Computed example of a mutant assay.
Amino acid sequence: MDDNRTADLGFARIDLDRAARTGDPEVVYGAGKTPEQVAAILTTLHERHPDRAVLATRLSPEAMDAAAAVGAEVHRVARAATWGPLPAQRGRVGIISAGTSDAPVAAEAALTVAVHGAEAVVINDVGVAGLHRLLAVRDSLESLDVLIVVAGMEGALPSVVGGLVGAPLIAVPTSIGYGASFGGLAALLGMLNSCAPGVTVVNIDNGYGAGVAAARICRVEPRVEVER
């Protein structure tokens, strides 16, 4: 049964009130859902909230095709789809990735940032194996309000960036690496043990979670000091 807060599709109860509660719209997590279910949820959310973008993440190729068939825009590198206009941008979030293999997670983070109301500035392939590449973009990093740093292997990049720049930094470990990386666990532990202060870590491959957190930081008004 539908009300003004929920749409019951039989296989799922869609939260229509999330934006009013949290400032962030409902998002479809596509893994484990059939292409038809993804398309139905996207359609319902778009019909109820045509004034803002809705997002579906972790889509299979078949689910992306189904989303495109009903009118959504597909983002194949990010394995995602959006439908509707993006909100006005507030704040600039840098998405810094170590290597090309990290691209799907970085793209998911960048798209999430845009859907949640901040500008995404993407800087690719600046991993610590070629430190000169990171130093070459240092000035660009210093102009950003929040940083999302995406890396696999040993996960060293957030520590290096955190030692260069003072912006809030969200580290995203990826499941990229050889056997001893244990599917991203090595990168996760390396980031959790970062010697650089101010590094916050999300779960393995969680570009979406990092993107939401970064956009929320950008929405916070600067605190004004009051003279006493």
Rank of each mutant, 00 (worst) to 15 (best):
L157Y: 05
G163F: 11
S97I: 00
Y208S: 03
E108Y: 01
P158G: 03
A67T: 06
R133E: 08
S101L: 11
S159C: 08
H132W: 15
R13E: 13
A215K: 00
E221W: 09
V77L: 10
C218A: 10
R21C: 05
C218D: 09
N4F: 13
A156D: 13
A56G: 09
A67G: 11
S175N: 14
A118E: 02
D3F: 10
V126G: 02
G163A: 09
S159F: 04
G30Y: 00
S140C: 10
S175D: 14
A68V: 05
Y178T: 13
I217V: 14
A103K: 06
T174I: 08
V122F: 08
L42D: 01
R228N: 12
I96C: 04
D102W: 04
A109R: 02
A40E: 13
V149P: 01
D65F: 00
V113S: 02
H46T: 11
V126C: 07
R48D: 05
A19N: 10
A196M: 10
L185R: 07
R79L: 12
Q37Y: 12
V128D: 05
G162D: 06
A214E: 02
A151Q: 02
A213T: 13
V54L: 08
V212H: 03
G94Y: 03
A106E: 01
M1G: 08
V224T: 11
G163D: 09
R76H: 15
L45V: 12
G152F: 02
G152T: 03
L192S: 09
I148H: 01
L147E: 04
A151D: 10
T174C: 10
V74R: 01
A39Y: 03
W83D: 00
L157W: 03
P61Y: 06
N203F: 11
L164Y: 09
A167Q: 12
C218K: 07
L134P: 00
P104E: 06
V149C: 06
E26K: 07
L147R: 01
G94K: 01
R228L: 14
T6Y: 12
T57K: 03
A210F: 02
E154M: 09
L55A: 06
V161A: 05
E142T: 12
R228F: 14
S101A: 15
I170K: 00
T57F: 05
A56F: 08
G30N: 01
